[in-house]
């Protein structure tokens, strides 16, 4: 049974009371929130995600709720709770849904150290995946959304979870967090795309979340073999350029974008070394999305 099969009003009541327990790839999440905006967007963007079986072990007990005191009413705010712990400062209440998404990223990146975790988008086709590590503002999510809407499978928009042998990437397909101009770009290119709310004035600017294709969610248990590590960079007016990058330079670039490279110590060094051994490495500069999609299709065809 998927989240989408619950009537929206029932989901609202569940999330407001005991909480909804659902699966996001290999993780089981319990979410509670009194905000209708949160349940409405869970219903919209997570409709293809399965509800967890009763009695399942819950990885993250998440609550997105107003703080106590005056800020519940005056310039209302929202707080995130994980097992009763509040790791972040409150945000304006109209950012409640975004806070859920960002907090879930934080939960995974800070607790799943059985994986080597990189800040990266990951897409897959024909059993081979591309890891796009990049800092914010590089055009990673725009590129990822475009590829996913063009037939590539979404493994993740934010976190590459690589197993310790570096043989597989573990998918966690979730809504793609688009920012600022990229929201309109993707909306214009793909009119059928389903978006969550437009949330303005966040720390990342204006953000909106794009619903992942149902196929990517359905195939969430299917691991993928890393074949390429590619550093994307959107540069207005630039020509499309895919250039080989040395493996040692790639190693350093991935380490800089990894969440737990230092936590894992020498094991992190070994895992990343194996990942780089098995991948072709590139820098990619683009401004034209159609050319970008063609470039990656050619890359796949040449493998």
């Amino acid at each position: 049974m998927n989240i989408g099969s619950i009537p929206q009003i029932d989901l609202l009541k569940t999330i407001q009371n005991e909480g909804v327990v659902f699966q996001v790839a290999g993780f089981t999440i319990k979410l509670q929130s009194p905000f209708p905006e949160v349940s409405k967007n869970i219903h919209k963007l997570y409709s293809d995600y399965p509800l967890a079986e009763q009695g399942s072990f819950i990885d993250f007990h998440m609550k997105v709720a107003p703080p106590k005191g005056l800020r519940r009413w005056y310039r209302p705010q929202v707080e995130f709770h994980l097992d009763g712990f509040r790791p972040f400062k409150p945000l304006p209440q109209d950012q409640a849904y975004a806070m859920f998404e960002w907090s879930l990223n934080w939960c995974i990146a800070n607790h799943m150290h059985n994986y080597f975790i990189v800040h990266a988008a990951v897409v897959e086709k024909e059993g081979k995946c591309i890891i796009f590590p990049a800092p914010p503002g590089s055009g990673k999510s725009t590129l990822c959304a475009s590829l996913v809407m063009s037939g590539w499978r979404l493994l993740s928009d934010e976190l590459a979870l690589v197993d310790r042998n570096a043989e597989n990437v573990f998918p966690i397909p979730r809504p793609i967090n688009l920012k600022n101009a990229s929201i309109d770009i993707i909306r214009a290119r793909y009119p059928g795309a389903i978006f969550g709310p437009i949330i303005k004035d966040t720390a990342k600017g204006t953000v909106s979340h794009l619903k992942p294709p149902a196929t990517s969610v359905r195939l969430a248990s299917q691991l993928s073999r890393p074949a390429w590590v590619i550093f994307p960079k959107y540069q207005a007016g630039s020509i499309t350029k895919l250039e080989k990058k040395s493996k040692a330079q790639t190693f350093m670039g991935v380490a800089q974008n990894a969440f737990n490279y230092t936590v894992l110590g020498s094991e992190g060094f070994d895992t990343l070394g194996r990942l780089i051994d098995g991948c072709d490495c590139y820098d990619f500069c683009y401004s034209d999305i159609d050319e970008a999609i063609e470039t990656f299709q050619s890359l796949l065809d040449s493998k």
Partner: peptide, 23 residues
């Protein structure tokens, strides 16, 4: 320390500090 090399260039991991350097 651990050293990993590709096509001449390499990366060096220092066990005591946890730092990694490009060589």
């Amino acid at each position: 320390f651990q050293l990993k090399e590709w096509e001449g260039e390499g990366v060096l991991y220092l066990a005591d500090s946890g730092d990694t350097h490009l060589l």
